[in-house]
Design a protein around this nucleic acid. Structure first.
Lengths: 172, 172
DNA sequence: GTCTATAATGGGATAGAC
DNA sequence: GTCTATCCCATTATAGAC
């Protein structure tokens, strides 16, 4: 609390005029990185376009947004255990919903013959772990556009195998 | 410390007959997950075989070993900041060395025309983040062989694009 | 709404008996 | 080598003046 206060230019005790507890601060950050995150990014999955186009757009926005809110994301992950049971469950639910929506667009891509994975749920987890790992090492001097390009390729052409041929072909 | 002691069936104070401090315990765990990890897994990169074969073997062993030491790995990550500066630097160095060795075999695969990535360092980070993400969600009821198979495919055929054709072809 | 001063709690670590 | 009892310190949170 003292560090947070110092970063804002006040003393630790004064923080309690703005938040009731440390948990409330952490919860507010976690909500921005989950509920607000979902609201901001998921709509792109409902636009026109093929599953691979929609997922590529999501991945690019995901990477750029991670870079923009890197510290908050780290806090949201590391301090998850400091939340109340209710708040933690809420946050986990939002993360799970995001993961499910990614799984669904992957499954759509598989049905369309664009993607080549056995288990869309597992592939969604692998892709999201790969993306979210960025927050642990990203520094300010990175070329974000190139970074996002690379990860779109890793995810869509790589893990999901866009363009790779499997057994079948014509969906259904 | 009290929880650790309880898990061993003794009282908190008795732990200090075996370790000088909590930091020493955390450091011991971190060393197993980095120094010992490197010694155990990296030799496979020096065996006979093509880069993709050697990397596939490493990825499979990596995933299975993550599952075997899941909790220690989580501790090693989450409590990294609890280590002394020296110990933390040592642990980070071992992790960096592992990452560099993975980068090198990826670069070898690119030179051989097997892999298709622009930046082996970035690809190594992406692959390792994808693998290490497993420790956050793995439960005991998973089919580890199938899990390892999937991640070998995600990494070697996916991110690294084994079999994908790029511009050139005959290395050098 | 910020400050100083101060509770109150939790957890790492020590002392000394057995 | 384990125990009980205790210390010690960091940190969250509160009280009350300004």
């Amino acid at each position: 609390m003292r560090e947070i206060a110092e970063a804002v230019g006040i003393k630790g005790a004064s923080l309690y005029n703005h938040f009731a507890s440390k948990e409330e601060i952490l919860h507010a950050i976690a909500l921005r990185m989950t509920r607000d995150w979902d609201e901001r990014h998921l709509p792109v999955l409902d636009t026109e376009g093929t599953p691979d186009q929609r997922l590529a757009a999501l991945v690019r926005a995901h990477v750029l947004s991670l870079a923009e809110h890197r510290v908050e994301h780290l806090v949201s992950l590391r301090e998850l255990s400091a939340l109340t049971d209710e708040h933690r469950a809420q946050v986990v639910d939002y993360r799970r919903y995001y993961q499910r929506r990614v799984r669904d667009v992957i499954a759509a891509g598989v049905r369309a013959g664009t993607f080549d994975v056995e288990d869309p749920t597992r592939a969604a987890i692998a892709v999201l772990d790969m993306l979210n790992g960025i927050v642990w090492w990203l520094r300010d001097d990175h070329d974000l556009a190139a970074l996002a390009d690379a990860y779109v390729t890793y995810a869509v052409d790589g893990v999901l195998g866009r363009g790779r041929t499997r057994g079948g072909g014509t969906g259904s």
